[in-house]
Design a protein around this nucleic acid. Structure first.
Lengths: 241, 241
DNA sequence: CGCTCTCTTGATAGACTTCAATGTTAGTGG
DNA sequence: CCACTAACATTGAAGTCTATCAAGAGAGCG
C-alpha cells in the first residue's frame, strides 16, 4: 500500500469533521501521493500558481499567508498533519495566496487528475471534502469576529483554544497542552499585531495564569478559564460527535 | 414555470463565478422556492438554527453577522440578489452565525431535500455550488488581510471596490457607482470600527476625491485610483472571464 | 411641530506601533 | 569550558491611531 501513512492521516482528519463511509475511506486510501520535504519558512505553494496537485500536510505545521504591497504579512490560517490547505485549488484555478511551512515539514502532493478521477468514481466523497472547505470558511469567519471585536488578549487566547480543540479532534493534543513552535513575530502576523505588542500580550495572559508558552509548546493551564476569557466556543469547528 | 425570476437570478450569479452546463442550468431552474418578505434589520436565519432550507436572496441586501458575548457585532460578509449565503447549511448542520436583511428584502427558501435530490440526479451541479462557497472563503481571507494589515481608509476603500466588482459581474453596477443603502454604524460593524471613526474615514476618502457617498448610493469617482489606493485586485473573486 | 435616526464635530483616554536598546538562549568552533 | 554568533524575547519612550463620551446639526416622518 503506497503512502498509507500519509493517507491515513488524511482519513483521520476527514473522520474528525465528517462521516466517512467505508467506500469513501477506501477511495481516499488509493490516492497517489508524492512526498517532498520543506524547511521552516519555505513556501510550498505560491500566490499566482495554477497548481495541478493538492498539498497534504504529512508532518509539521503550515500557514496560509498573503502580504500587502508594502510588505506587511498576514497569516490567514494555520494547518497541520492530515489537512489539505489548498484543496480549493481543485476548483479555483489560480492561488490567491501562498502556503508556507512554519516548521520543517513533509508535504504529500496529490495530482488533481487522480483526485478528480476518484471523485468521478466515488462521487459521494465530494461531500466530506466540500465539508472540510466549509469548515475552513467557518474558521475564517471566527477569525474575522476575533480580529474585529475581541481585544488583543482575547484574540490570542481564542487562537490557542481553537488550535487545541482542532488538534485534540485528531488525537494530537491532550492534557491542556500541545507542541507548537511559533515565534512571537509569526504570532503577530496571525493576529495583525507588532511583535512588541504580541510580547506584552503574552505576558498579560501569563500574569492572569491562563497560558504558559515555553519554547515550542503551548500550555493552556486552565482550558475552560481561557475559553471563557477568550469567548471561545467550539461550535464553529463542526467536529463530529 | 414557478419562480423563474428568483431562480434566474441564481443562475445569473452562478454563471458569473462558474461555467454552468445546460443540464446544470436546467436542474437549477426546476428547484422549488418559497418566497418571504423581510424588513430591514430583521434576521432571516439565526445562530444555532438547524435549517432545513437554504435562503436565496431575491431582492435587497443581506449580511452575515455574529456578536461577542458583550454585544459587539461583527458583519462577516455582505450579500445581494442571486446569492445563497447559507448554502453551507446543506452540509453543516447548525448555523454558527446569523443572517440579516440590511434593506427590505425578499428571500426565497429552497428546501434541503429538493436541493439534495437535484444534486443526486445532476451531481455535476455540486461543483459550481462548491465553487461559490470556495469563493466566499476567498473573500473571507481577503477581509482578514484587509482587517489585519490595511489602514482604515484602505480597508474601507477595498470594501467599496469589492462590492463594485461583484455587482458588476452580475450586471448590477456600472459607471463606477452602485445602489447601497448602509449606515455608517453598519459599516463600522463591517470594518470593526466605531461609527465615529467611520465618519472621519469616509471624510478622508471624500477629501482625497476617491469616494462619494450620497444617501443610498456609492460612487467610486475614479475606480482605478481607489483600487490602487486600497490595494484592491480582483483575482480573489475568481469571476469567470 | 416634535420625534427619531443618522451624521458630524470636539475632547480625552487608552491601545498599539515604531524605534532603539538590552537580555536570553541555543548552537558553533576554539 | 569559554567566546562568539544569531535568533528570539523583553523593555522603555515617544508618537499615532481609535474608542468613548458628549453634544449639536440635518433630514424624514407622524
Amino acid at each position: 500500500m503506497p503512502h498509507s501513512h500519509a493517507l491515513g492521516l488524511l482519513v483521520r482528519k476527514l473522520r474528525s469533521v465528517a462521516n466517512l463511509s467505508a467506500d469513501e475511506e477506501q477511495a481516499v486510501m488509493t490516492l497517489p501521493v508524492a512526498l517532498k520535504q520543506f524547511r521552516a519558512g519555505e513556501d510550498f505553494v505560491h500566490e499566482g500558481d495554477r497548481p495541478e496537485h493538492c498539498a497534504l500536510i504529512v508532518r509539521g505545521w503550515a500557514c496560509r499567508h498573503k502580504s500587502t504591497t508594502d510588505g506587511k504579512r498576514q497569516i490567514l490560517s494555520i494547518h497541520f498533519s492530515g489537512e489539505i490547505p489548498d484543496l480549493q485549488s481543485l476548483l479555483l484555478r489560480s492561488m490567491d495566496h501562498s502556503l508556507s511551512a512554519m516548521t520543517d515539514a513533509e508535504i504529500g502532493y496529490i495530482p488533481h487528475g487522480a483526485l478528480n478521477a476518484t471523485l468521478e468514481r466515488c462521487w459521494h466523497l465530494t461531500r466530506p471534502l466540500w465539508r472540510t472547505t466549509l469548515i475552513d470558511g467557518a474558521i475564517y469567519r471566527e477569525w474575522l469576529l476575533a480580529a474585529g471585536r475581541l481585544d488583543t488578549a482575547q484574540h490570542m487566547g481564542h487562537l490557542f483554544c481553537e488550535l487545541y480543540r482542532r488538534l485534540e479532534a485528531v488525537g494530537m493534543a491532550a492534557s491542556d497542552e500541545y507542541e507548537f513552535s511559533i515565534t512571537q513575530a509569526e504570532l503577530g502576523d496571525v493576529l495583525g499585531l507588532s511583535s512588541v505588542h504580541v510580547n506584552r500580550t503574552v505576558q498579560a495572559l501569563r500574569r492572569r495564569g491562563l497560558v504558559e508558552w515555553p519554547r515550542g509548546r503551548v500550555k493552556t493551564l486552565d482550558f475552560e478559564a481561557l475559553a471563557r476569557f477568550s469567548q471561545f466556543t467550539p461550535d464553529y469547528l463542526h467536529h463530529v460527535a
